[in-house]
Design a protein around this nucleic acid. Structure first.
Lengths: 327, 327
DNA sequence: ATAATATGTGGAACGCTTTTCAGAGCAAGC
DNA sequence: GCTTGCTCTGAAAAGCGTTCCACATATTAT
């Protein structure tokens, strides 16, 4: 296929002029411009974007890492990112990392070798050092809190989320409360646990270890929780659960085993997945789509503003309680 | 940051030799290779991938179009694609098209300007001419049947799916059966409708127009169906529904309005989304993840085999009935 | 001993576009 | 009449790696 030189030759002008036409620069004689456009059309010419990228040093692509693609929480974030990205003419490179630091590093590497202009990490398992290191090659935003010095973040206030959930349950009279969270030692989980323990202490309740469930990631994990609860001496009257599909598993399994929700067991979830609405789950919700939108905005600003290099910023989203039928 | 020329100079060799080291070509003296690697390390050098792309004419990126990111069906397909892609060192550019031909064309364009090596369309709204046109610039696979001459596809046999569902319902004694499908005139929908009408005719039942619902895309659409059914003179005893989240909407709304499932209304869904399992929905299922896997395999073969250019291939996935509690 | 093959290396062309710089022509302003 | 400032254009450099071709040396085979 033709290249810019050929177009220039056919039009009897220099490549500079053709380039100006392609990029809508002013200072091109209207007649020539029309002539060149006609030839471009005839030759069915388009720029080779790799040459453009090489020359400009930008690709108009941003990377997005997430542990797994097929998950509503992450899909909602991407939805938010995607909507914003399309408006600013960016494309998305979506990279599944399986929470594997190796795979994550290979994505960070894309910043270094200039395949992407910036990176949004919906979740991360790399160390802070690694993050800081790669932040030198291009802007990175995480959708979780992080304690690096240079990587900004947009995140849900998970402490606040569990606080609201706990206060709500306690106001309803619950004192025997358990919890389910995902990855045991993630930043998010730590904040959630802190709220949980603080709130229990505030009413002088000693936490019951058997009512704490960690590494709950799938619907099945939620179902399993109910089985385990049945084996405990005394059962909690309420569970606060870090996401609604786990909550859904709990609710379904409970109803199968004749435990009525909310009478025997109240359940509060913590996100805005549609399954929560479908099953009428009470939830402390923040919009993950909105988080994605903010993440893109922050990233975009950093791509275009050199002053922001290394300047850390944190944006926290406040959750709201959505009362439904499981409490 | 250093480039290959600088590395060559520091090592006292030519750029060719450095390039050979970078690409693991044989015929490089081991001692030199070690020396060069050391310098690369010291200089913290990595290739500029845009230069590599320009030079090789490949990007190792494939595009994926889908109408919306936040949808379990499409997420499952991507999951299958992603798993396969990572093994072959391809990255994914995920592009939301909102079923808008304009946006779809902008993705097809990526093929023309060499930003991607191939394209998988999970759904498409472009015309066959457009597809054929762009197929000239790189391999395209659709995850729906299509009647172009040059674009291959991997798709679920939707005719078979509805056939199995209908036969099952009829064997259970149903004669008053309605349906819900998504986009009215998509290929998929046409095949489904054909099976529906053929089966009804085979037992001499005249279809009831008010029991046909098209453009059902969201859970809410499913709920609305129940409302509309209540207004019909006579209600169907069963519904066959093209996807499980619509089915979920129907079931939830039905139970809210005191219509018991399956006694008053049996519901058969048609995919393998987890919501189907959660709500125990009987479904005629094919694995969308597997479809994604096959789509990648087919695309990959076409990227590497020039002989296949323009040679159309179609792969059909057969569904199986999964009997659960809604029938 | 000679031919043939394998190993190792450099030069230069190729892939393609953007952008800076220099300069030409022309109009307006003083 | 001369300066200033637009408008318009082209040459050339810069961005960077891959690969073909030519050539040299070292083995191995005949």
């Amino acid at each position: 296929m033709a290249n810019i030189r050929e177009i220039a030759k056919l039009a009897g002008v220099s490549v500079s002029t053709v380039s100006r036409v392609l990029n809508n620069h002013p200072y091109v004689n209207e007649k020539k411009r029309a002539e060149i456009l006609k030839i471009i059309e005839e030759q069915n010419y388009v720029q080779n974007s790799n040459a453009v990228h090489l020359s400009t040093g930008k690709t108009m692509v941003i990377g997005v890492t997430l542990p797994l693609v097929n998950n509503q929480y992450y899909s909602s974030i991407i939805e938010g990112i995607a909507a914003e990205a399309v408006q600013h003419h960016y494309k998305l490179m979506v990279c599944q990392t399986n929470n594997n630091p190796e795979q994550e590093r290979s994505v960070l590497h894309l910043l270094k070798n200039k395949k992407i202009d910036g990176l949004i990490m919906c979740s991360r398992s790399s160390s802070c050092e690694t993050l800081n290191e790669y932040a030198g090659y291009g802007p990175i935003i995480t959708c979780e809190a992080n304690d690096t010095t240079s990587v900004s973040s947009v995140h849900i206030d998970h402490y606040q989320t569990f606080l609201i959930g706990m206060e709500y349950l306690m106001k309803k009279g619950h004192r025997r409360i358990g919890y389910c969270i995902g990855r045991k030692n993630s930043f998010n989980s730590q904040h959630r646990k802190r709220a949980y323990y603080e709130k229990l202490r505030s009413i002088d309740v000693t936490p019951t270890p058997e009512w704490s469930f960690e590494e709950c990631l799938t619907i099945q994990d939620g179902k399993d929780v109910v089985g385990k609860l049945l084996q405990t001496e005394e059962r909690p009257t309420a569970m606060i659960v870090s996401c609604n599909h786990i909550a859904a598993g709990i609710i379904k399994e409970a109803s199968r085993l004749g435990i009525s929700v909310p009478e025997d067991l109240a359940v509060v979830g913590c996100d805005d997945q549609p399954i929560g609405e479908l099953l009428e789950i009470t939830t402390v919700s923040s919009s993950s789509t909105l988080m994605g939108k903010y993440a893109f905005e922050m990233l975009h600003e950093r791509i275009w503003t050199q002053q922001l290099v290394g300047k850390k910023e944190e944006k926290e989203l406040s959750p709201v309680l959505v009362e439904r039928l499981t409490t």
